[in-house]
């Protein structure tokens, strides 16, 4: 378990498929970044079907978080460094 679960996160969606999470992020956030599975965000390597999309809103990242027994969540966490790292990839 990554330390994401110890962070101050907001669950935007749960009990969804990975693809539903991707569409939610694309539909609801203007600043969207595509990354490959295994992209390191905080201390975890993202799981998912490529492309994995990460939304950015102000200083928050919005991303899919997959758990083997609980499916996909869409989480929102404030972290300026991760936002800047994503924007620097472009």
């Amino acid at each position: 378990m990554g330390c994401i679960e110890l962070m101050d996160y907001e669950i935007l969606l749960s009990d969804i498929s990975f693809k539903e999470g991707r569409e939610f992020i694309r539909r609801n956030f203007k600043d969207v970044h595509e990354v490959e599975p295994g992209y390191k965000l905080f201390d975890v390597y993202l799981i998912g079907i490529p492309p994995i999309v990460i939304g950015v809103e102000n200083d928050h990242v919005i991303f899919p978080y997959v758990k083997p027994c609980h499916g996909t969540f869409v989480l929102k966490i404030e972290d300026r460094e991760e936002v800047e790292r994503l924007r620097a990839k472009r």
Partner: peptide, 15 residues
């Protein structure tokens, strides 16, 4: 056996 399994499969395929 679930949607998460597909995500793990795609991740392994990618890495």
């Amino acid at each position: 056996h679930n949607d998460a399994g597909i995500s793990y499969l795609a991740t392994i395929q990618s890495m």
